[in-house]
Design a protein around this nucleic acid. Sequence first.
DNA 1: ATGCTATGTAGTATGTATGCTACATCCATG
DNA 2: CATGGATGTAGCATACATACTACATAGCAT
Lengths: 83, 83
Amino acid sequence: MYATSMSRNAEVPVFNQIEEVRTKLGLSRQELADMVGVHYQTIGYLERGEYSPSLVLALRISEAVNKPVSELFSLTDPKKGKK
Amino acid sequence: MYATSMSRNAEVPVFNQIEEVRTKLGLSRQELADMVGVHYQTIGYLERGEYSPSLVLALRISEAVNKPVSELFSLTDPKKGKK
DNA sequence: ATGCTATGTAGTATGTATGCTACATCCATG
DNA sequence: CATGGATGTAGCATACATACTACATAGCAT
């Protein structure tokens, strides 16, 4: 069964691995932000899960850190459903 | 060199294969829309490239049609840069 | 011709992703 | 102790993704 109407996201969390990947690469938020062309606070908001990015931004981040989108973002908690 | 400030997307096109994949699956827009929980017009807008989806919606579509995000969406025209 | 389905176009309304500024904290290292 | 870098919190402004309604058109079946 699906939602009959999506009242615009945000109640739908998107889990991401941005912080893990970023720190593994030794990048600051400012540096990653510069690479993808957004404000450094935006990276912070994403890492804290305060909102989920546009697809464009997700693709750019994916490109910047050289990881597929599916490894960076998912609709299910990657820490739980390790299955 | 990177953009010093991204004035919010939309001038950044995102190419997608939604229509191709959807019709190949024999789905109407309405059916795909129901599967991912959005309005059927939203699918139309995406297919016509009138705007690019949120990451959440992209992930849901990807899940619905069982194709990785990278096969459905890209920042570069998949018809041109076949390289 | 009538009806139905799929699609396109147009317009309005709303939430939210993003930009940006400012200030606070923490931790290095001079 | 200062200074600077990285991060967190807070607030405001704006653009865009999405919802929704309505109408038009085209194709296909009856």
